[in-house]
Protein backbone atom coordinates (compact mmCIF):
# COMPACT_ATOMS: atom_id res chain seq x y z
CA UNK A 1 0.00 0.00 0.00
CA UNK A 2 2.76 2.39 0.99
CA UNK A 3 4.61 1.62 -2.24
CA UNK A 4 1.53 2.48 -4.29
CA UNK A 5 1.16 5.87 -2.56
CA UNK A 6 4.85 6.62 -3.12
CA UNK A 7 4.50 5.76 -6.82
CA UNK A 8 1.40 7.95 -7.19
CA UNK A 9 3.20 10.81 -5.47
CA UNK A 10 6.18 10.34 -7.75
CA UNK A 11 3.92 10.37 -10.83
CA UNK A 12 2.36 13.65 -9.64
CA UNK A 13 5.82 15.14 -9.07
CA UNK A 14 6.86 14.04 -12.56
CA UNK A 15 3.73 15.62 -14.05
CA UNK A 16 4.34 18.93 -12.25
CA UNK A 17 8.04 18.83 -13.23
CA UNK A 18 7.03 18.26 -16.87
CA UNK A 19 4.60 21.20 -16.94
CA UNK A 20 7.12 23.52 -15.27
CA UNK A 21 9.86 22.35 -17.68
CA UNK A 22 7.66 23.06 -20.71
CA UNK A 23 7.02 26.59 -19.41
CA UNK A 24 10.75 27.10 -18.75
CA UNK A 25 11.56 25.86 -22.27
CA UNK A 26 8.96 28.18 -23.75
CA UNK A 27 10.37 31.19 -21.87
CA UNK A 28 13.91 30.23 -22.96
CA UNK A 29 12.82 30.13 -26.60
CA UNK A 30 11.13 33.54 -26.30
CA UNK A 31 14.30 34.94 -24.74
CA UNK A 32 16.44 33.44 -27.49
CA UNK A 33 14.23 34.76 -30.30
CA UNK A 34 14.09 38.24 -28.77
CA UNK A 35 17.88 38.37 -28.36
CA UNK A 36 18.31 37.18 -31.95
CA UNK A 37 15.79 39.76 -33.18
CA UNK A 38 17.60 42.72 -31.66
CA UNK A 39 21.22 41.55 -31.64
CA UNK A 40 22.17 43.99 -34.43
CA UNK A 41 21.12 46.85 -32.18
CA UNK A 42 23.24 45.81 -29.21
CA UNK A 43 25.57 48.52 -27.93
CA UNK A 44 27.35 49.05 -24.68
CA UNK A 45 25.34 52.13 -23.70
CA UNK A 46 27.62 53.80 -21.17
CA UNK A 47 27.75 57.50 -20.28
CA UNK A 48 30.51 57.93 -22.86
CA UNK A 49 28.01 56.86 -25.53
CA UNK A 50 24.83 58.60 -24.41
CA UNK A 51 22.25 59.18 -21.74
CA UNK A 52 18.55 58.54 -21.26
CA UNK A 53 16.13 61.01 -19.72
CA UNK A 54 12.94 59.21 -18.77
CA UNK A 55 9.35 60.29 -18.26
CA UNK A 56 9.43 63.78 -19.72
CA UNK A 57 5.93 65.10 -20.42
CA UNK A 58 4.34 66.75 -23.45
CA UNK A 59 0.78 67.17 -22.22
CA UNK A 60 -1.52 66.75 -19.27
CA UNK A 61 -2.93 63.28 -19.90
CA UNK A 62 -1.36 60.38 -17.96
CA UNK A 63 0.28 58.89 -21.06
CA UNK A 64 1.51 62.16 -22.54
CA UNK A 65 5.13 61.32 -21.78
CA UNK A 66 8.31 60.21 -23.50
CA UNK A 67 11.90 59.05 -22.98
CA UNK A 68 14.80 60.83 -24.65
CA UNK A 69 17.97 58.99 -25.66
CA UNK A 70 20.68 61.57 -26.21
CA UNK A 71 24.11 61.11 -27.78
CA UNK A 72 27.04 62.01 -25.52
CA UNK A 73 28.48 64.33 -28.16
CA UNK A 74 26.85 67.74 -27.54
CA UNK A 75 29.13 69.82 -29.73
CA UNK A 76 27.38 69.63 -33.06
CA UNK A 77 25.36 72.50 -34.47
CA UNK A 78 22.38 70.34 -35.48
CA UNK A 79 20.92 66.94 -34.67
CA UNK A 80 18.40 64.63 -36.29
CA UNK A 81 15.45 63.35 -34.27
CA UNK A 82 14.29 59.76 -34.55
CA UNK A 83 10.68 59.75 -33.37
CA UNK A 84 9.69 56.27 -32.16
CA UNK A 85 6.08 55.16 -31.63
CA UNK A 86 5.50 51.92 -29.73
CA UNK A 87 3.08 49.22 -30.81
CA UNK A 88 0.34 47.51 -28.84
CA UNK A 89 -2.70 47.19 -31.07
CA UNK A 90 -3.77 50.82 -30.33
CA UNK A 91 -4.89 49.47 -26.95
CA UNK A 92 -1.65 49.00 -25.03
CA UNK A 93 2.13 49.06 -25.12
CA UNK A 94 4.68 51.39 -23.61
CA UNK A 95 7.62 53.63 -24.51
CA UNK A 96 9.94 51.43 -22.43
CA UNK A 97 9.37 48.16 -24.34
CA UNK A 98 12.51 46.31 -25.39
CA UNK A 99 12.26 47.44 -29.04
CA UNK A 100 12.25 51.08 -27.91
CA UNK A 101 15.23 50.58 -25.60
CA UNK A 102 17.25 48.69 -28.22
CA UNK A 103 16.52 51.20 -30.99
CA UNK A 104 17.10 54.12 -28.64
CA UNK A 105 20.48 52.98 -27.39
CA UNK A 106 21.66 52.00 -30.85
CA UNK A 107 20.55 55.17 -32.61
CA UNK A 108 21.80 57.49 -29.83
CA UNK A 109 25.15 55.71 -30.12
CA UNK A 110 25.11 56.68 -33.81
CA UNK A 111 24.64 60.34 -32.89
CA UNK A 112 20.86 60.68 -33.33
CA UNK A 113 18.47 62.10 -30.76
CA UNK A 114 15.88 59.37 -30.15
CA UNK A 115 12.49 59.92 -28.54
CA UNK A 116 10.25 57.02 -27.53
CA UNK A 117 6.78 58.45 -27.13
CA UNK A 118 3.72 57.25 -25.24
CA UNK A 119 0.22 58.21 -26.32
CA UNK A 120 -3.28 57.67 -24.95
CA UNK A 121 -4.40 54.35 -26.33
CA UNK A 122 -7.96 53.15 -26.74
CA UNK A 123 -9.87 51.47 -23.95
CA UNK A 124 -13.50 50.38 -23.86
CA UNK A 125 -14.31 53.51 -21.82
CA UNK A 126 -12.27 56.38 -23.26
CA UNK A 127 -13.37 56.28 -26.92
CA UNK A 128 -9.90 57.34 -28.11
CA UNK A 129 -9.46 56.96 -31.88
CA UNK A 130 -6.45 56.66 -34.18
CA UNK A 131 -6.90 60.33 -35.08
CA UNK A 132 -6.71 61.28 -31.39
CA UNK A 133 -3.45 59.32 -31.08
CA UNK A 134 -2.09 61.06 -34.18
CA UNK A 135 -2.95 64.49 -32.74
CA UNK A 136 -1.15 63.68 -29.48
CA UNK A 137 1.93 62.54 -31.39
CA UNK A 138 2.04 65.77 -33.42
CA UNK A 139 1.91 67.70 -30.14
CA UNK A 140 4.65 65.45 -28.76
CA UNK A 141 6.95 66.11 -31.74
CA UNK A 142 6.60 69.87 -31.29
CA UNK A 143 7.21 69.74 -27.53
CA UNK A 144 10.20 67.42 -27.98
CA UNK A 145 11.82 69.81 -30.44
CA UNK A 146 11.63 72.63 -27.87
CA UNK A 147 12.86 70.41 -25.05
CA UNK A 148 15.84 69.25 -27.10
CA UNK A 149 16.77 72.87 -27.87
CA UNK A 150 16.69 73.59 -24.12
CA UNK A 151 19.00 70.64 -23.53
CA UNK A 152 21.46 71.89 -26.16
CA UNK A 153 20.43 69.59 -29.00
CA UNK A 154 19.20 71.73 -31.87
CA UNK A 155 17.03 69.59 -34.15
CA UNK A 156 16.81 70.44 -37.83
CA UNK A 157 15.24 67.28 -39.31
CA UNK A 158 13.55 64.08 -38.23
CA UNK A 159 12.58 60.52 -39.09
CA UNK A 160 9.60 58.57 -37.75
CA UNK A 161 9.62 54.89 -36.87
CA UNK A 162 7.69 52.23 -35.01
CA UNK A 163 6.28 48.73 -35.15
CA UNK A 164 2.75 47.39 -35.56
CA UNK A 165 0.28 50.06 -34.34
CA UNK A 166 3.38 52.21 -33.82
CA UNK A 167 4.37 51.61 -37.44
CA UNK A 168 0.96 52.81 -38.57
CA UNK A 169 1.14 55.91 -36.38
CA UNK A 170 4.75 56.63 -37.43
CA UNK A 171 3.64 56.54 -41.07
CA UNK A 172 0.73 58.87 -40.31
CA UNK A 173 3.11 61.25 -38.51
CA UNK A 174 5.48 61.22 -41.47
CA UNK A 175 2.99 61.29 -44.33
CA UNK A 176 -0.37 62.78 -43.34
CA UNK A 177 0.56 66.42 -42.66
CA UNK A 178 4.35 66.83 -42.52
CA UNK A 179 3.94 70.62 -42.35
CA UNK A 180 2.63 70.22 -38.79
CA UNK A 181 5.94 68.81 -37.62
CA UNK A 182 8.48 71.17 -36.02
CA UNK A 183 11.29 70.21 -38.42
CA UNK A 184 11.24 68.64 -41.89
CA UNK A 185 10.67 64.91 -41.93
CA UNK A 186 13.10 63.03 -44.17
CA UNK A 187 12.32 59.37 -43.72
CA UNK A 188 9.96 56.77 -42.25
CA UNK A 189 11.01 53.23 -41.38
CA UNK A 190 8.51 50.83 -39.90
CA UNK A 191 7.67 47.20 -39.23
CA UNK A 192 4.27 45.56 -39.73
CA UNK A 193 2.20 48.72 -39.42
CA UNK A 194 -1.37 48.60 -40.79
CA UNK A 195 -1.31 50.74 -43.91
CA UNK A 196 -4.96 50.48 -44.88
CA UNK A 197 -8.11 50.04 -42.83
CA UNK A 198 -10.31 49.11 -45.76
CA UNK A 199 -12.56 46.60 -43.91
CA UNK A 200 -12.57 44.07 -46.76
CA UNK A 201 -8.80 43.66 -46.35
CA UNK A 202 -9.40 42.70 -42.72
CA UNK A 203 -11.83 39.89 -43.40
CA UNK A 204 -15.07 41.85 -42.91
CA UNK A 205 -17.65 40.17 -45.10
CA UNK A 206 -20.91 41.86 -44.16
CA UNK A 207 -21.86 45.54 -43.99
CA UNK A 208 -22.53 45.14 -40.26
CA UNK A 209 -18.99 43.83 -39.75
CA UNK A 210 -17.57 46.62 -41.94
CA UNK A 211 -19.21 49.45 -39.99
CA UNK A 212 -18.40 47.84 -36.64
CA UNK A 213 -14.73 47.71 -37.67
CA UNK A 214 -14.68 51.30 -38.93
CA UNK A 215 -16.63 52.63 -35.93
CA UNK A 216 -14.16 51.14 -33.45
CA UNK A 217 -11.18 52.70 -35.22
CA UNK A 218 -12.69 56.11 -35.99
CA UNK A 219 -15.19 56.68 -33.17
CA UNK A 220 -17.91 57.32 -35.78
CA UNK A 221 -21.41 55.86 -35.56
CA UNK A 222 -22.02 54.52 -39.03
CA UNK A 223 -24.81 52.05 -39.67
CA UNK A 224 -24.76 49.27 -42.25
CA UNK A 225 -26.52 51.38 -44.89
CA UNK A 226 -23.67 53.94 -44.72
CA UNK A 227 -21.23 51.53 -46.33
CA UNK A 228 -20.09 53.03 -49.62
CA UNK A 229 -21.13 56.58 -48.68
CA UNK A 230 -18.71 59.48 -49.02
CA UNK A 231 -18.49 60.06 -45.26
CA UNK A 232 -17.82 56.40 -44.61
CA UNK A 233 -15.00 56.27 -47.17
CA UNK A 234 -13.57 59.54 -45.90
CA UNK A 235 -13.41 58.14 -42.37
CA UNK A 236 -11.44 55.12 -43.60
CA UNK A 237 -9.12 57.20 -45.78
CA UNK A 238 -8.37 59.55 -42.89
CA UNK A 239 -6.55 56.79 -41.02
CA UNK A 240 -5.22 54.76 -43.98
CA UNK A 241 -1.75 55.95 -44.91
CA UNK A 242 -1.99 54.15 -48.26
CA UNK A 243 -4.49 56.79 -49.43
CA UNK A 244 -2.21 59.69 -48.44
CA UNK A 245 0.81 58.86 -50.56
CA UNK A 246 1.79 61.45 -53.17
CA UNK A 247 4.91 62.41 -55.11
CA UNK A 248 6.16 64.46 -52.13
CA UNK A 249 5.99 61.57 -49.66
CA UNK A 250 9.30 60.95 -47.90
CA UNK A 251 11.21 57.68 -48.46
CA UNK A 252 9.82 54.71 -46.56
CA UNK A 253 11.44 51.47 -45.44
CA UNK A 254 8.92 48.72 -44.66
CA UNK A 255 9.04 45.21 -43.26
CA UNK A 256 6.18 42.69 -43.13
CA UNK A 257 5.74 38.97 -42.52
CA UNK A 258 3.22 37.10 -44.71
CA UNK A 259 2.19 34.86 -41.79
CA UNK A 260 0.97 37.83 -39.76
CA UNK A 261 -2.18 36.83 -37.86
CA UNK A 262 -2.60 40.19 -36.12
CA UNK A 263 -2.24 42.81 -38.85
CA UNK A 264 -3.86 41.81 -42.13
CA UNK A 265 -1.10 40.75 -44.52
CA UNK A 266 -3.29 42.17 -47.31
CA UNK A 267 -3.32 45.69 -45.87
CA UNK A 268 0.22 46.44 -47.05
CA UNK A 269 -0.53 46.06 -50.77
CA UNK A 270 -2.46 49.34 -51.25
CA UNK A 271 0.53 51.12 -49.69
CA UNK A 272 3.11 49.32 -51.84
CA UNK A 273 1.05 50.07 -54.95
CA UNK A 274 0.66 53.74 -54.00
CA UNK A 275 4.41 54.08 -53.36
CA UNK A 276 5.16 52.60 -56.79
CA UNK A 277 2.54 54.69 -58.61
CA UNK A 278 3.86 57.91 -57.08
CA UNK A 279 7.52 57.02 -57.58
CA UNK A 280 8.25 57.33 -53.88
CA UNK A 281 11.63 55.99 -52.83
CA UNK A 282 10.95 52.91 -50.74
CA UNK A 283 12.18 49.46 -49.91
CA UNK A 284 9.95 46.60 -48.85
CA UNK A 285 11.66 43.75 -47.00
CA UNK A 286 9.54 40.64 -46.68
CA UNK A 287 10.21 38.20 -43.82
CA UNK A 288 8.94 35.03 -45.54
CA UNK A 289 8.92 32.76 -42.48
CA UNK A 290 7.63 35.31 -40.02
CA UNK A 291 4.40 36.62 -38.65
CA UNK A 292 3.72 39.81 -36.73
CA UNK A 293 6.85 39.67 -34.57
CA UNK A 294 9.20 39.21 -37.58
CA UNK A 295 11.00 36.60 -35.48
CA UNK A 296 11.50 33.80 -37.99
CA UNK A 297 14.02 35.29 -40.43
CA UNK A 298 17.37 36.28 -38.88
CA UNK A 299 18.87 36.98 -42.33
CA UNK A 300 16.04 39.41 -43.12
CA UNK A 301 16.43 41.06 -39.73
CA UNK A 302 20.04 41.75 -40.62
CA UNK A 303 19.01 43.09 -44.03
CA UNK A 304 16.36 45.33 -42.47
CA UNK A 305 18.76 46.93 -39.99
CA UNK A 306 21.50 47.31 -42.60
CA UNK A 307 19.02 49.07 -44.88
CA UNK A 308 17.86 51.21 -41.95
CA UNK A 309 21.48 52.32 -41.46
CA UNK A 310 21.84 53.05 -45.18
CA UNK A 311 18.61 55.04 -45.30
CA UNK A 312 19.56 57.05 -42.21
CA UNK A 313 22.96 57.77 -43.70
CA UNK A 314 21.47 58.72 -47.05
CA UNK A 315 18.49 60.84 -46.00
CA UNK A 316 19.56 62.44 -42.73
CA UNK A 317 22.36 64.97 -42.76
CA UNK A 318 23.57 64.84 -39.16
Amino acid sequence: MKKVIVNILFAVICLIAFVVSVIVGYIMSAQYLTNRRYKYLNVNFTQDVGTVIKDLTYGEKPLNNYDLYLPADKDRENYSLIFFVHGGGFTGGDKSLIEAKKHGEYLASKGYVFASVNYTYATTENGVTINDMYEELITAANVIEKKCAELGYNLNEMAATGGSAGGCLAMLVGVKAPERLPVPIKLVFEETGPASFEPDLWGCETDEARVAFVNVLTGKKFIASDVGSEDYQEAIDEISVATMINENTVPILLAYGPNDKIVSAEAKYPLLNALKENNVEHKYIEFPNSGHGLLGDPDKTKEYYRTMDEYLEKYLSN
Binding site: I13, A17, V24, L33, N259, G291
Partner: peptide, 30 residues
Protein backbone atom coordinates in the same frame (compact mmCIF):
# COMPACT_ATOMS: atom_id res chain seq x y z
CA UNK B 1 15.64 5.85 -5.62
CA UNK B 2 18.34 6.24 -8.27
CA UNK B 3 15.92 4.96 -10.91
CA UNK B 4 13.29 7.55 -9.87
CA UNK B 5 15.87 10.33 -10.06
CA UNK B 6 16.83 9.32 -13.59
CA UNK B 7 13.15 9.25 -14.60
CA UNK B 8 12.60 12.71 -13.08
CA UNK B 9 15.63 14.19 -14.86
CA UNK B 10 14.47 12.62 -18.14
CA UNK B 11 10.99 14.11 -17.68
CA UNK B 12 12.52 17.56 -17.05
CA UNK B 13 14.78 17.33 -20.12
CA UNK B 14 11.89 16.21 -22.34
CA UNK B 15 9.72 19.01 -20.88
CA UNK B 16 12.29 21.72 -21.59
CA UNK B 17 12.86 20.36 -25.10
CA UNK B 18 9.10 20.32 -25.73
CA UNK B 19 8.77 23.92 -24.48
CA UNK B 20 11.70 25.04 -26.62
CA UNK B 21 10.37 23.41 -29.79
CA UNK B 22 6.84 24.67 -29.15
CA UNK B 23 8.14 28.18 -28.40
CA UNK B 24 10.44 28.36 -31.41
CA UNK B 25 7.65 27.21 -33.70
CA UNK B 26 4.82 29.24 -32.28
CA UNK B 27 6.61 32.48 -31.32
CA UNK B 28 8.99 32.25 -34.27
CA UNK B 29 6.06 32.15 -36.63
CA UNK B 30 4.13 34.91 -34.92
Amino acid sequence: MKKKLIILITVIVIGIATGLVFGLNSIGGL
